[in-house]
Amino acid sequence: MPTPLYELKAEFFKTLGHPARIRVLELLSQREYAVSEMLPEVGIEASRLSQQLAVLRRANLVAVSRREGSTVYYTLTSPQVADLLAVARRILTGLLTDQLGLLEDLRAATPRAAPGPATG
């Protein structure tokens, strides 16, 4: 029996469920990157970055685009990954904008403390 699509989607989103992986995908949405270039941008140690890249490679989201000596360059396997990240950004922007509006409404509805008695 084939795996239901909703389970495959859940696994896909689990793969995306790590901040370092999202950051790698964001970087690769711009251009190809060498691992050494990604390290300061992702902010994790080299061994952890290699682990996260391996997860993304197994999920077929990134691939080695080329090698120059010991330098390995990665790229996205599909421009649709960049599209997905852009959609997520728009969704989050909308949610945060709504929350900001709610916060402003709450602040406006908060009664102000009455001024103390005048001394003279």
Rank of each mutant, 00 (worst) to 15 (best):
S65N: 06
A109G: 14
V42T: 05
G120M: 04
S47G: 01
A114G: 07
E41P: 00
V87Y: 12
E37W: 01
S29E: 10
P40S: 07
L25G: 00
L16F: 12
S29A: 15
G94T: 11
L76A: 06
G69I: 04
L27N: 02
E45A: 12
L39R: 07
A118M: 11
T3P: 00
M1Y: 03
P79Y: 03
G120W: 07
G43E: 08
L106A: 12
L84Y: 07
P115M: 00
D98V: 05
E37N: 05
V35S: 12
E11T: 11
T77V: 10
L5I: 11
L85S: 02
D83L: 09
A118R: 14
G120Q: 09
E11L: 13
P79T: 09
A82E: 06
L96D: 06
R67N: 07
V35E: 08
G101A: 12
T93E: 15
F13L: 14
Y6T: 08
P19I: 04
T119C: 05
P117I: 06
L49H: 04
A46M: 11
R23D: 03
L8W: 01
R112A: 14
V42F: 03
A88D: 00
R66C: 08
A88Q: 10
N60C: 07
Q52D: 08
T110Y: 10
L56V: 04
L85F: 02
G120H: 11
L106N: 09
R107C: 06
H18Y: 13
L56M: 07
E68D: 13
L56H: 00
I91T: 10
K9D: 08
N60Y: 09
V35W: 00
K9R: 12
V64R: 05
R58W: 06
S36Y: 10
T110F: 09
E32F: 08
A82D: 03
G17N: 15
P115W: 05
P79I: 06
S70C: 03
R31I: 00
A59F: 04
I91A: 11
